[in-house]
Computed example of a mutant assay.
Amino acid sequence: MQQYLLSIYQPDGDPPPPEILDPIMRDVEAVIADLREAGAWVFSGGLHPPGTATVLTLKDGEVLTTDGPYVEGKEHLGGFTVIQAPDLDAALAWGRKLARAITLPIEVRPLAHGSGG
């Protein structure tokens, strides 16, 4: 089975207040539970804000260290889920469920062969 990365893009700034975020997170947990029950879930993770990132860049034979995100933008990668699915259509169906639950854009991308899957 092919593995797919479901990337969650969220806007920069503070998260919504608990009265908005809590029901969303319950819906996300329900999708994760469905993924687990279907045997499609591989693993998931949320990320700290982009300001906590450290970027390593090779330049002139030296690896430079820079604090902060690689690219400044209005949104950032906030979390991800890796799933396994028989084909892209099945992965997109899971992506749609996650998008409905989290109310944020989801990018669905197959993992390249040889990436551990």
Rank of each mutant, 00 (worst) to 15 (best):
P23D: 12
L98M: 13
G46I: 00
A38E: 11
I24W: 05
D34W: 09
R100G: 07
G117T: 07
L47V: 10
W94K: 08
Q84K: 15
H76P: 03
R26C: 07
R100F: 09
K97L: 12
R36D: 05
V108A: 11
G13Y: 10
W94R: 09
L98P: 04
W41A: 10
L35M: 12
V55N: 11
R96Q: 12
T54N: 05
G46H: 07
G79S: 07
A33C: 01
L35D: 03
P49Q: 04
L92G: 04
L64K: 14
F80C: 01
P23Y: 01
P105N: 06
L35S: 00
D12Q: 06
G78H: 03
D27L: 04
D14A: 15
G39K: 06
H76D: 10
A40K: 02
L92S: 05
V71F: 14
L56M: 14
I32C: 08
L6E: 03
D12I: 15
I83A: 08
L6H: 03
T66A: 12
H76Q: 13
I106E: 03
A40N: 05
A93I: 08
F80S: 06
R96N: 14
D87Y: 04
A91C: 13
G117K: 00
V82N: 02
I32N: 03
L88I: 07
L88W: 05
L21G: 12
A93T: 10
P17T: 11
G95H: 02
V55H: 08
R36V: 12
A38G: 09
D87H: 13
D27H: 07
I20T: 12
A38N: 15
V63K: 06
W41M: 14
E107D: 13
E72F: 11
P86C: 04
L56E: 12
F80A: 01
G117C: 09
G73D: 12
L47P: 00
L77Q: 06
P69I: 07
A40E: 03
T81H: 02
V28R: 01
G78T: 03
A33T: 08
G51D: 15
R96F: 08
V55S: 10
H113Y: 03
P16D: 14
P15I: 08
V55L: 13
R109Y: 02
P15C: 11
A33S: 13
P18T: 11
L58F: 00
E72I: 13
T81F: 02
I32W: 13
P50L: 13
G61V: 08
A30C: 00
M25I: 10
